[in-house]
Simulated assay, not measured.
Amino acid sequence: MWIYDKKLQFPVNIKNPNPAMAKYIISQYGGPDGELGASLRYLSQRYSMPFKQCIGILNDVGTEEIGHFEMIATIVHQLTRNLTIDEIKESGFGDYFVDHTTGIYTVSAAGIPFDATCFASKGDAITDLMEDMAADAALL
């Protein structure tokens, strides 16, 4: 179905850990407006779309969002690798670290785990497309 290049579309090469920044960026991974919700939104909505061209677009956008999901995970991983206990405490990363150490987990910046209520798939083409536009506008 897909060909996976096994490399990021845009390479990520963060040299200095920054767990404070990771706390915010993790929300783009599994927060309410993150890449997981975006990919599931498009890939779920495609099945009730009555127009073949739109089905293809929703599938393409959904798979593109999965690529973004991978880039965000890489960013968070690089920002949190090789942390010292002092860096964890000083950055406020301790609450996340207690539950996940430096594992990548679908969570918002506030620490709320990903929930499928972060996206909609109503089965009505207009409603779903309005949801998509509203979700993408939230990032602008």
Rank of each mutant, 00 (worst) to 15 (best):
M1S: 13
I3R: 08
Y4K: 08
Y4D: 15
D5S: 08
D5G: 12
D5P: 15
K7Q: 15
K7Y: 08
L8P: 04
F10A: 14
P11G: 01
P11N: 05
P11D: 07
V12C: 00
N16W: 06
N16A: 06
N18G: 04
N18F: 11
P19N: 01
K23A: 15
K23V: 11
Y24L: 15
Y24A: 11
Y24E: 06
I25G: 01
I25Y: 03
I25R: 09
S27F: 14
S27H: 05
Q28D: 13
Y29G: 01
Y29R: 13
Y29M: 05
G30E: 10
P32L: 01
P32N: 10
D33M: 08
G34E: 00
L36T: 02
L36W: 05
A38W: 07
L40R: 02
L40N: 02
R41H: 09
R41L: 10
R41E: 10
L43Y: 01
L43F: 00
S44Q: 08
Q45Y: 05
R46M: 10
R46G: 11
M49G: 02
P50H: 05
I55P: 00
I55V: 12
G56A: 12
I57L: 15
L58D: 05
D60G: 15
G62R: 04
E64D: 12
E65L: 04
I66K: 11
G67E: 14
F69A: 08
F69H: 07
F69E: 07
E70N: 09
E70S: 07
A73V: 03
A73H: 08
I75E: 00
V76F: 01
H77T: 10
T80M: 04
N82M: 06
L83E: 09
I85H: 09
I85S: 10
D86G: 05
D86E: 13
E87D: 03
I88H: 00
K89F: 09
K89H: 02
E90M: 11
E90L: 14
E90G: 04
S91R: 00
F93A: 03
F97V: 01
F97G: 03
H100P: 02
T101E: 12
T101K: 14
T102W: 06
T102C: 09
T102E: 12
G103F: 02
G103P: 06
I104S: 02
I104L: 02
Y105P: 02
Y105I: 09
S108L: 09
S108N: 10
A110W: 10
I112W: 11
I112R: 07
I112L: 08
A116L: 07
T117V: 11
T117P: 00
F119R: 04
A120Y: 13
S121R: 01
S121G: 12
K122N: 15
K122W: 04
G123E: 12
G123S: 07
D124P: 03
D124F: 06
T127S: 08
T127M: 10
D128W: 08
M130E: 12
M130P: 11
E131L: 03
D132R: 07
A135V: 07
A137R: 05
A137E: 14
A138F: 05
A138H: 14
L139A: 04
L140M: 13
